[in-house]
């Protein structure tokens, strides 16, 4: 429930610096939730990466951009309607999901139970998450590394080249109130 409050605050607050800090709190609270849901590794990653690195990245951008969000008059009723309709549909669909925490859920049937039973015999690693990540699904992890590499390349390509045009007009835009 607290998560919902913090998330609402993130969207409502106009001051971008405050929004960033609230987002870090949101990440930490969700990390705590992951711990409660038995996902220790995920909680650690979320706390380090979500609350740490994301916040630093956003703060780095905020040093370059304006701190206050440009105010939008009133509420966006069309967006609100779309969101409410989609949310109602998703809640309706969630009624068909299996009950939370039941050991007989279909998720636990297929390959998950194999991992919990056979991991130590197969790999000798007691931490199942690490074993699955680095041993059973190492090719997927390699793909993940490629994704990160591509993203890093994209960031460098975007930030290393000076934009040729629009220099003068950019100055105009900055001086406008």
């Amino acid at each position: 429930m607290f998560l919902v409050v913090v998330a609402l605050a993130v969207i409502r607050v106009r001051d971008l610096f405050a929004a960033t800090m609230l987002f870090a709190i949101y990440s930490l609270v969700s990390a705590a939730l992951f711990t409660v849901l038995d996902a220790g590794d995920v909680a650690l990653t979320e706390a380090a990466v979500g609350a740490g690195i994301s916040t630093i990245l956003v703060l780095a951008v905020l040093t370059l951009a304006r701190r206050q969000e440009h105010p939008v008059p009133g509420h966006n009723l069309l967006a609100l309607a779309v969101v409410l309709v989609t949310g109602a549909g998703l809640v309706y669909a969630s009624m068909d999901l299996p009950e939370f925490g039941d050991p007989d859920n279909p998720v636990h049937g297929h390959v998950g139970s194999y991992y919990t039973e056979q991991t130590y015999a197969d790999t000798g690693v007691p931490n199942m998450v690490a074993a699955v990540l680095a041993s059973y699904r190492s090719i997927d992890t390699l793909g993940e590394a490629f994704v990160i590499f591509t993203a890093a390349l994209g960031v460098f390509a975007l930030l290393s080249v000076r934009p040729p045009a629009r220099r003068s007009r950019a100055r105009d835009g900055e001086e406008a109130p």
């Binding site: 996902a39 690195i53 956003v58 998950g112 991992y115 199942m128």
Partner: peptide, 27 residues
Amino acid sequence: NPLPHVLILTAIVVGVATVAVGLALAI
């Protein structure tokens, strides 16, 4: 079940990569 945990670990890291690209675009 460890399998969703592994998937989400990957997703968190990839998510940060996308955030970085998005912020670079914003700059």
